[in-house]
Simulated assay, not measured.
Amino acid sequence: MGTITKALELLNQFSSTRSEIGLGEFVRLSGRDKATVHRHLSELEENGFLEQDPSSRAYRLGPALLRLSAVREAAFPVRALLRPIVFELAEAVGELAHASLLQGDLLSPVFHSDPRLHGTQVHFDESETLPLHATSSGLAALSFLPEALRDQLLSQPLKALTSKTITNPAVLRHMIEQVRRTGWSQLDSTFDQEVASQAAPLFGENGQVVGAIAVAVPLVRADFDRMRTITPKLSEAARSATRSLGGQYPDFPSAHRPMFEPTHIE
């Protein structure tokens, strides 16, 4: 792992619930020695990627990220394109919907919307990246990656995030075959013990998968009939989002066929 990667990885420690981090906590979170972490933090601060609270001396994300984010959105307005589609999907199904883009072997959330029609809701953190093997969004994207890259990712150790996370590559390969036939994925309790989700891939102008759009439902409402009503609306949203991104959505041979039996969503 190079020096630049080690420095930039420190930025991934921030989240909506951890907006400021002190040197000691960075050392604990990264597992690196204090001198090295301090050097990386200082370099990030000098370049505007971090700033330090003058009172607490804790670090927070800096203004350089805002500038780069604005440049990215101006040149490639993905968030602006996906926002109305995700919002309309959430309103149509009455549940939380979100879209994410591929970031290496993870998905990075772009936008989410929740109509908040129910007392029990899904907690969604846009600062949290999504693993490809443990989320329906990840599985949808993983299924359409180039075969060599997919094999490489499945050959690595897969982390169990809950008791139901699928870490067996053979099982995942079988599920990938189903996703490639139907165009959508569905998992429950594999990333969050109390959540079921359904997702469809998004494709860019070069025909390659670029991310996924998904609907997340509290497990208490995620019966077979409820999840089945989501599928056509999700597929249409994925088709619309792909067109907005300049891509062409494939025709899947079994798009309207249930992927899983009612007694076994996963």
Rank of each mutant, 00 (worst) to 15 (best):
G2V: 08
I4P: 04
K6N: 15
E9L: 11
E9Y: 06
Q13S: 13
E20G: 03
I21Y: 01
G24E: 13
L29Y: 06
R32E: 14
D33Q: 11
K34Y: 05
T36H: 12
T36R: 14
H38S: 15
R39K: 13
L41R: 07
L44K: 03
E45F: 04
L50N: 04
L50Y: 01
E51C: 12
Q52E: 10
P54I: 05
S56N: 06
A58G: 05
L61S: 04
L61D: 03
L65H: 05
L65F: 05
L66N: 14
R67G: 10
L68Q: 14
L68I: 15
V71E: 15
R72P: 03
R72I: 13
E73Q: 06
P77C: 00
P77S: 00
R79T: 11
L81Q: 13
L81C: 06
L81T: 06
V86C: 05
V86Q: 02
L89Y: 07
A90W: 01
E91P: 08
E91Y: 04
A92W: 02
G94R: 00
L96E: 01
S100I: 04
S100C: 11
L102V: 12
P109V: 00
D114C: 03
D114Q: 04
H118C: 02
H123N: 09
H123Q: 11
S127P: 09
T129Q: 15
A134N: 06
T135I: 07
T135M: 07
S137K: 03
A140W: 03
L142T: 06
L145R: 11
L145C: 08
E147C: 10
E147I: 14
L149T: 12
R150P: 05
D151M: 07
Q152H: 13
Q152I: 04
L154S: 02
K159S: 14
S163R: 14
I166T: 13
N168D: 14
N168T: 05
V171H: 10
L172M: 05
M175R: 14
I176L: 09
E177K: 12
Q178G: 14
R180Y: 06
R181S: 10
R181Y: 10
S185R: 00
Q186H: 08
F191T: 04
E194T: 11
S197F: 00
Q198L: 14
A199W: 01
A200G: 05
A200C: 03
F203S: 12
F203K: 11
N206S: 12
V210G: 01
A214N: 12
V215C: 00
V217L: 00
A222V: 00
F224Y: 15
D225L: 10
D225H: 10
T229Y: 03
L234G: 01
S240D: 13
L245A: 09
G246I: 09
G247V: 07
P250T: 03
P253K: 02
P253D: 02
S254D: 15
A255E: 13
P262T: 08
T263V: 10
T263R: 09
H264F: 13
